[in-house]
Design a protein around this nucleic acid. Structure first.
Length: 433
RNA sequence: GCCCGGGUGGUGUAGUGGCCCAUCAUACGACCCUGUCACGGUCGUGACGCGGGUUCAAAUCCCGCCUCGGGCGCCA
């Protein structure tokens, strides 16, 4: 297709070959219009019955919606055409014919439910709205990579097939690895920590994580994209600074590069967060939740925040915010406690008013305390020997975090289901496509 | 894992015991139409998830199964 012209680039008086999908055919009798769509937009092709070659007109009128066609013709300036230009064809080739009963309508005249759309994702992403989400997702991923690099972090990739889990407690997908028991990794946590002790020092990873929890909600996936960061010689406050900067960089990139996509999605009030994200302590958080009166029972120190409480707090705060200084007992063992108060963890969460986006903290880098943490969690440190032993050979203090990529996109765009932000979601009911 | 709520033409829907051999839109087929831009018009094709039960009568009520969505726990 070396001579192909995108529909958006068709300029009057050119002779072009455009290739794309038949979006619609409007037959008015003596004249008919074929609307051809490609990744850049749509263009109108005119068919005039008495003026043009009979066979050419017949080919054009017989073509079914969503068939792939190749049109050769002259581009004319035409104020009556939707884009002010139209093609007067000299040749129409049906490259790939589409069956007539489409499982969903890519022109968007008739809605389809999410499961129908996911079953037919190829057709779904021919729709402008779906396509816009994934163009934005692509921009977000590029922006976070660039932002990480500006902080001097190196991109790494770590194994997704592992012998042991990360935190032990979470459900893992078991697999068979040449006859041995193995698992799909639930987080790059341990591997990225191992790398802050390497010559790389500061790393990030964008990759899949797998969780076998049987939840069924608009904010959970069994395969998600984790955006991970970890740096040597960082404490939790510095990690939060980077976290905030990365999220803002993602918003900025979308605001700058995706105006058409935002318009397609009907988002006319897209705002890049510019204020510093408030940092609430856990204690302040439960006090504020209790003050809203939304919960039937008052929260007390040591409680995890229930979903209802998160929502109440999110509404009260109204923007992204951090929750810091959690009770040590409800944060994982690899997170370091405050030096001056062992009941307080350096762990933090970063919240969007609608849901949790990030969790992170300063890590326990001292070998003895780390091994003790494993034992307290009821885990056998021996099984994690590949990890713990590296803490014997000079592991610097370090901190980091992980963002749920799909949650970032879903909250950014106000999508009501996280599955909208994944091409082929994996959830409790869905393993295919 | 626990708890709710759904499944009606290809798609999206209306229909809470008889008015339903099932509504509307869109799609699809045929015909008419020379400037549409959700083109318009006429006619037509096409569906009650599966199995059992209650009833004179079931898309509608009951039971089981399958399937989907949601809430919670937990989490990113």
């Amino acid at each position: 297709m070396d001579e192909r012209t995108y529909t958006a680039d068709a300029t009057p008086d050119d002779t072009v070959t455009v290739a794309g999908w038949v979006h619609e055919l409007r037959d008015l009798g003596g004249i008919a219009f074929l609307i051809v769509r490609d990744t850049t937009g749509k263009i109108q092709v005119k068919l005039e019955k008495d003026e043009m070659d009979e066979e050419l007109v017949e080919t054009g009128l017989d073509v079914t919606r969503e068939s792939v066609v190749k049109i050769v013709g002259d581009v004319k300036e035409e104020p009556r055409a939707p884009t002010d230009v139209e093609i007067v064809p000299t040749a129409i080739e049906v490259v790939a014919e589409a069956e007539t009963q489409l499982p969903l309508d890519p022109s968007g005249k008739v809605d389809a439910e999410l499961p129908t759309r996911l079953d037919n994702r190829t057709l779904d992403v021919r729709r402008g709205e779906s396509k816009a989400i994934f163009e934005i997702r692509s921009t977000v991923l590029r922006a976070v990579r660039e932002a990480f690099r500006s902080f001097g972090a190196s991109e790494i990739t770590t194994p997704k097939i592992v012998a042991t889990g990360t935190e032990g407690g979470t459900e893992l997908f078991p697999i068979t690895y040449f006859g041995e028991e193995a698992f799909m990794n639930q987080s790059p946590q341990l591997f990225k920590q191992l790398m802050v002790g390497s010559g790389l020092e500061r790393v990030f990873e964008v990759g899949p994580i797998f969780r076998a929890e049987e939840h069924n909600t608009p904010r959970h996936l069994n395969e998600a994209t984790s955006i991970d960061f970890e740096s040597a010689f960082f404490d939790h406050t510095e990690a939060m600074d980077v976290c905030e900067a990365i999220v803002k960089a993602a918003y900025e990139a979308v605001a700058e590069n995706c105006t058409d996509e935002l318009e397609t999605l009907g988002i006319d009030d897209f705002e890049v967060p510019d204020e510093a994200f408030p940092r609430l302590t856990y204690e302040e958080a439960i006090e504020r939740i209790n003050a809203t009166g939304e919960l039937d029972e008052q929260l007390v120190w040591g409680d995890d925040l229930p979903t209802e409480g998160e929502h109440a707090l999110g509404q009260a705060v109204g923007e992204h915010y951090f929750i810091t200084d959690w009770p040590a007992e409800i944060k994982p063992f690899y997170i370091k406690d405050h030096d001056d108060d062992e009941t307080l963890s350096t762990g933090f969460d970063m919240m969007h008013p609608r849901m949790e986006l990030v969790s992170g903290g300063q890590r326990e880098h001292r070998f003895d305390q780390l091994v003790e943490g494993f034992e307290q969690q009821g885990l056998d440190p021996e099984e994690f020997d590949y990890y713990t032993k590296m803490f014997k050979y000079g592991m610097p203090p370090h901190a980091g975090w992980a963002i749920g990529g799909e949650r970032l996109i879903a909250t950014m765009l106000g999508l009501d289901n996280i599955r909208e932000a994944v091409l082929f979601p994996r959830d409790r009911q869905r393993l295919s496509p």
